[in-house]
Amino acid sequence: METLNYRFDGGTRRLKPAPELVGVVSSGNLEVLIEHAALDGGCSIEIKTAARGFGAIWQAVIGDFFGRWQLADTRIAINDMGATPAVVSLRLDQAVQVMLEDQP
């Protein structure tokens, strides 16, 4: 297993203060936990992956995700067993859509 950690600052969108679990490891080989957290406005992402050596791809996928959503005070944990970048983006987007404060 490889663990990758990323942090982004400057986000403006905040989540509802309740954790949300989207996907399971047996569904698309990916599990995402997203939650509101006091991170001085930052967005922290920890990835535990069985696919070693793909840090550059993860950086691109996670950077694109942050660019779309601009999250602040958010902690994301990803457990990956070899999901494709498209599945990763889909699961992350699903989690955020149900957790945004500005959603009805």
Rank of each mutant, 00 (worst) to 15 (best):
M1A: 07
A83M: 00
I78H: 02
E31F: 04
N29H: 06
D93Q: 09
S27E: 10
S89Y: 03
L21W: 15
P19N: 08
L39V: 04
I45S: 04
A37C: 11
Q70S: 12
W58Y: 11
S44E: 14
Q97M: 13
G67W: 08
A86V: 05
E20V: 15
V98G: 15
V88E: 02
Q70H: 14
E20D: 15
P104G: 13
R7E: 09
A77M: 11
A18L: 15
R91S: 00
A51P: 12
R68I: 12
I45L: 09
W58D: 03
G10V: 11
T12S: 07
G41R: 05
D64P: 05
G10A: 09
L39N: 08
H36F: 13
V96Y: 01
N5P: 08
Q59C: 12
L21R: 13
V61C: 07
P85F: 04
A56W: 13
E101Y: 12
F66E: 03
L100H: 15
A95P: 05
I47C: 02
V88I: 08
Q97D: 15
S44K: 11
R14A: 10
L92I: 04
D80T: 00
I47N: 00
R91P: 00
N5A: 14
D93E: 08
G28I: 02
L39S: 08
V25Q: 07
K16D: 09
I78E: 01
K48Q: 11
I57W: 09
F54N: 09
Q59T: 15
V87E: 02
G67C: 09
N79E: 13
N5F: 09
V87Q: 00
E46W: 13
C43T: 10
G53W: 06
P85V: 05
A37R: 10
M81N: 11
N79H: 11
E31T: 07
Q59H: 13
A38Y: 13
G53D: 08
K16C: 10
I47T: 03
L71G: 02
R52C: 13
G53K: 05
E35C: 12
A51W: 12
I57D: 10
P19S: 08
L92K: 01
D93A: 08
T49Y: 01
G28R: 02
V61T: 05
A60C: 12
A95V: 12
F65A: 01
L71Q: 01
T3S: 04
I78N: 00
Q94V: 10
A18E: 10
T84E: 08
C43I: 05
D73M: 10
Q94C: 14
A86C: 08
V98F: 15
E31M: 04
Q59M: 15
T84W: 06
A56Q: 11
N29F: 07
I45Y: 03
Q103I: 14
D9N: 14
I47W: 03
G41Y: 06
F66I: 06
V87R: 01
I76P: 00
E35Y: 14
L71C: 06
D9P: 09
L92G: 01
G10T: 07
